[in-house]
């Protein structure tokens, strides 16, 4: 399947006084899997629906394969969309749903039938062609929606929180399948989610959105370990924002004068793991809890700020003996300590 790049140029959309998209620009490469990640109201769905053609923009342009599609109606854009609630047609059976886009394109019946069955096979729904939509489980409906979206060889796939209605195990299996489908077809994909783990697992790049803007767009590793803003740091997981003056280098004496982001799992209780150029902090143990694969400790620094420390269970021989109120030192390797410019604590 041929893949197309997408360019979003200074896109703006206001609903009354509420700015849903505030001058958003974005380059998506052909064949890329890009995730728009953010809390609800961050503008991620609005941006997706603008690409789809359902949101009329106040300003800006959207290019698909170099062609301006800003004014093109949705039915002329050739995009495969998977909606959060699947939006299957309940008055048609599975096969008719998948054949629908082909029927619209006046593809001969025999050909359409073959392609629809192919698409169903791709999403592992062989034998479900004649089922009623009402007789399907959530996961099966999701697959029908996927088949219907890919069957007409769209230029781009758009997915709006497609897995949010599924239970956890199924969601993880489907994450893998959607990504595999993307890799097989090589189709440019924009995926919307508010689940950071889903975004990290599936994406080539993640655009983290907040109040109508893109805060950061980067690979999952960089968004996770090198957040540009405090918002990104905190949204991506258990991030500790440590104020200036609380942390010193292991081989030094003076406290560091920057605001630092250190993830809970970057800490160790043994300085050997952090290395000589690592950092150290000290605090009073306020709480500890065992979570199976790790121990979670809450340290209160002298500045009264709390820091979360996650120690893998395999390296936490001493954790069980620690008692609240005790002073504990924790160490993190330099590579996992990230200064956040201009961040307010």
């Amino acid at each position: 399947m041929k893949s197309f790049p997408i360019t979003v140029e200074s896109v703006r959309k206001a609903y009354g006084s509420y700015l849903a998209l505030d001058d958003v620009s974005l380059e998506i490469e052909a064949g890329e899997f890009l995730t728009l990640l953010g809390p609800s109201g961050s503008g991620k769905t609005t941006l997706l629906m603008a690409v789809a053609g359902f949101v009329l923009l106040d300003n800006g342009k959207i290019l698909l394969g170099g062609r301006d599609i800003t004014r093109l109606p949705p039915n002329k854009r050739e995009l495969g969309i998977v909606f959060q609630n699947y939006a299957l047609f309940p008055h048609m059976n599975v096969l008719a749903n998948v054949e629908y886009p082909l029927a619209l394109r006046k593809i001969p019946r025999v050909d359409a039938r073959r392609r629809a069955l192919d698409a169903l096979a791709r999403v592992k729904l062989e034998g479900f062609a004649q089922r009623d939509i009402a007789a399907l489980s959530g996961g099966q409906r999701q697959r029908v929606a996927l088949a219907r979206a890919i069957v007409f060889k769209p230029r781009v796939m758009l997915m709006d929180e497609p897995l949010s209605a599924l239970d956890k195990n199924l969601r993880e299996a489907m994450q893998y399948e959607i990504r595999r489908l993307h890799d097989d077809l090589g189709i440019t994909t924009i995926y919307v989610t508010h689940d950071q783990r889903e975004a990290l697992t599936m994406s080539d790049r993640i655009a983290v959105m907040n109040s109508g803007r893109i805060e950061q767009i980067d690979t999952p590793e960089r968004v996770y370990h090198r957040p540009l803003t405090r918002f990104v740091a905190e949204f991506m997981g258990e991030a500790n924002i440590v104020p200036p003056g609380s942390v010193r280098r292991i081989d030094g004496v003076d406290a560091l004068r920057e605001t630092l982001m250190i993830r809970a799992e970057s800490f160790h209780l043994d300085p050997a793991f952090a290395g000589p150029d690592g950092v150290a902090l000290e605090g009073v143990l306020r709480a500890k809890s065992f979570r199976g694969e790790n121990w979670l400790l809450t340290l209160e620094l002298d500045t009264r700020q709390e820091v979360l420390i996650s120690v893998p269970a395999t390296l936490a021989a001493g954790c069980a003996d620690l008692a609240p109120g005790q002073r504990v030192a924790a160490f993190a390797p330099a590579a996992k300590v990230h200064a956040i410019a201009g961040a307010k604590v």
């Binding site: 053609g53 109606p73 039915n75 959060q84 939006a87 886009p101």
Partner: peptide
């Protein structure tokens, strides 16, 4: 009526008339 169905039909290539005639009217 679930309006997403109309959006789905539109994204799959249906004009307004086809979406109304093929998706809304039968339901």
């Amino acid at each position: 009526f679930d309006w997403n169905q109309v959006q789905a039909a539109r994204s799959l290539g249906a004009s307004w008339a086809r979406a109304i005639g093929g998706i809304i009217v039968p339901q």
